[in-house]
Simulated scan of single mutants.
Amino acid sequence: MTQPVSGTTKGGGQAAAAPRRRKKLTWDKVSFMLVFLGVPFVLYIIFVISPFIQAFIYSFTNWSGFSPKYDFVGLSNYVRIFQDNLFLKALGNNILLLVVVPLVTIVLSLALAVVVTVGGSSKGQVKGLKGSGFYRVVSFFPYTIPAIAIGIMWGQIYDPSNGLLNGLLRAVGLSGFKDYPWLGDSRTAMLASMFVIIWGFVGFYMVLFIAGIKGIPAELYEAARIDGAGRLRTAMNITIPMIRDNIQTAYVYLGIVALDAFVYMAALFPNAGGPENSTLVMAQQLFFTAFQRGQFGVATAMGVVMAVATLGFSGLVFLVNRLTGGKDQELV
């Protein structure tokens, strides 16, 4: 008599799968979780979460920063900063940076990355410009310089009397820029500051986008070329959709830079917020409020506003990416 096949019943039905046995925890597994999960989690709680909670608590007090005594004042610190014209001016400057710096940096970085990787000859194999490795190194170089050094260097370049920029403009016959105060004129101070920040980050995000583009199969570009797609359409329909996650990451990090910008502005404008406070940012106003006025309670309220703005911006970027297709977007 033939025996039923393993895994089936006599009636031909599938036998119920044997329940999986739960593996016992061993000392090796427990020690691994403690070292590689538990310790980092504890350190994150101590050095990230705990200071933020403390700052949130101090934002409801009149703490002077140098005394263990303080009184709770409720929401008065938040009411005060949103009635402070200087803080509102700084907030507006940060919003302007948030709109311009990430957008311009990403557009320039993406354009350069496309040219370096797939912007070569339109005939034969898809490739970038000749000598693309040299362009990568040169463009990445500014990112290796500390932000404070970049600010000091560009402060010298923008110098009205002896700066390189005015010297070059005079050399090409633009005499109207003799001794022009790029950082001393409220009409140009913010634009000049934005250029410095963008200059410092374009190379890094260019390399980031190059890494993403390198992961796109060359067959997609070859198929687009056969179909007669131009460079712009290829970039819009293939390159950008395939590296959406890279662009999203870049936008979040550049948004954080724009909402801070303290180092760049402090280096370019050592005497506070530039002409008519046209370059004052929230981080500078927080610093002045805490260490010059001794109002640490008000300063921590500003810090909480900055943190909430950063989290809100990051969430907005993720939401927009999800609503516009995200990973599920199909190539057209």
Rank of each mutant, 00 (worst) to 15 (best):
S122E: 14
I81K: 08
A113N: 05
L174D: 01
V101F: 07
N94I: 10
L164M: 11
R136S: 00
L164D: 00
A113K: 03
T105V: 09
G128A: 04
V114S: 13
L168T: 15
F177N: 03
A113I: 10
L97Y: 11
L112C: 07
F140L: 12
M153F: 12
K127Y: 06
F177G: 01
V172D: 05
V126H: 04
N85Y: 14
F177E: 03
P146D: 01
L103C: 12
A111S: 15
S122M: 14
K123C: 11
I150S: 00
F82R: 05
Y135P: 01
L174H: 08
L112H: 00
I106E: 02
L91A: 14
A171D: 12
F134H: 03
I148E: 05
G151E: 00
M153E: 04
L97N: 09
F141C: 06
L97S: 07
L98W: 06
P102F: 12
K89I: 11
K89A: 12
Q156W: 14
V172G: 07
D185T: 09
Y78H: 03
V104C: 05
T144P: 06
G176D: 15
P146N: 02
P142C: 00
G128V: 09
R187D: 12
M194T: 10
G119H: 10
F141M: 11
G173E: 11
W182C: 02
F140S: 05
L86Q: 15
A113D: 06
N93F: 05
S122I: 14
R170I: 15
D185I: 10
V104G: 06
L86K: 11
G131R: 08
F140Q: 05
L169R: 12
L112N: 01
A90N: 04
V101Q: 10
Q83L: 13
V100P: 00
K123F: 13
N162W: 14
I81W: 09
N166I: 07
T144H: 02
Y78L: 05
Y78E: 02
Y180W: 10
A192R: 08
S121R: 10
Y78C: 04
F134E: 04
V99S: 08
G163C: 05
L165E: 00
L103P: 11
G133D: 03
L91R: 11
N94G: 10
N85G: 15
Y135D: 00
P146Y: 01
A90I: 09
R80A: 14
F177W: 10
